[in-house]
Design a protein around this nucleic acid. Structure first.
Lengths: 172, 172
DNA sequence: CGAGCGATGGCAGCAACTGACATCACCGTA
DNA sequence: TACGGTGATGTCAGTTGCTGCCATCGCTCG
């Protein structure tokens, strides 16, 4: 992470990382599937937490609202607790298209998992994915704002705000 | 594309592609930035079309509805006209995680472009991106259904249906 | 003390890309 | 017709991400 931040992701070779860590290149690839995965270790934990929160959400909540509530709950422990790390990490990702690709697919699998959790709540076939995707979209916009304006609000607040905003864009 | 379909994307080397095309490996990389871009040539055309359709959409439409209308308009010329190609292409993408990553980032830039077009309509700061992302989510779900069940309905119909479904997941 | 096992090192090799330079076809012009 | 320039292609060498295979080492358990 230090090297990524210092020289940029692409300019950092795996050999350099291994060297800094006092290990071999071969060993690096035993710990990480590829060079990008370094930045996405904790993503499965977030996914599990999110799924649990969706399952535990108030049964009366509409699908998207359940997702939003889950995101808010997850935000507290996962991001608001230590705001420094996520922002640092995101700066690295934002500087590299390769990493953005990886981030998007992680969010997509997150959405799929959330959709699965929604189905357990009795949400129907296309609705589950739509609600999950919409929820993730809310999260993306909220997270971006939270990163951009440090200290103003909690991530949870941005999520709530974005969710309300989404409702306004639907019309009808 | 033939080689991708026959042996899978990862198993197909650029050398093999160049050979089949009667060209050099080096020449391949002068036409395509990388091995994946072969599958995403037309994406900028779709983007331009979509942006134009958003700009031309009925001014009274709410943001998401403007995007949905644009998607429907684009669907007719871009997908319904020749349903075979997109389905073939999508089968290749669905078989390869690398290609899915690339597809996601293409859709993300699409969303960004659509958000820009919405801003020209006077849509505000977080709402533009939310409406664009929601619209793309609708498209993704609709497209998937359209690919999965050939012949049943037009892509435009699926988009309309998904958009209505999305509204239902938002709740009170 | 020895057998087994998980983590690591070392090495060879493939494939995706890139930069630098040469070559060649074509096209407008003197 | 000959010439100069321009764009597309070929050639080659090199870097880097990543993988398979086998050897080694340390630790633990019986």
């Amino acid at each position: 992470m230090e090297l990524y931040a210092e020289h940029g992701f692409e300019a950092t070779t795996v050999a350099a990382i291994a060297d800094r860590a006092g290990l071999t290149e071969r060993t690096f690839f035993r710990h990480f599937a590829d060079k990008r995965e370094v930045l996405f270790q904790g993503s499965s934990l977030l996914q599990e937490l999110l799924v649990r929160e969706v399952q535990d959400a108030d049964a009366a909540l509409a699908p998207v609202e359940a997702v939003v509530a889950a995101l808010q709950a997850a935000a507290v422990g996962f991001f608001d607790a230590d705001a420094e790390r996520p922002r640092f990490r995101q700066a690295i990702i934002d500087a590299s298209p390769e990493l953005q690709e990886r981030e998007l697919i992680k969010l997509a699998t997150l959405a799929t998992a959330v959709a699965g959790a929604l189905r357990e709540r009795g949400v129907g076939e296309p609705a589950d994915r739509l609600a999950a995707e919409a929820g993730i979209a809310v999260f993306r916009v909220a997270f971006e704002a939270w990163v951009r304006e440090p200290g103003d609000h909690t991530l949870s607040w941005w999520i709530r705000t974005s969710a309300d905003e989404l409702r306004g864009t639907l019309g009808g």
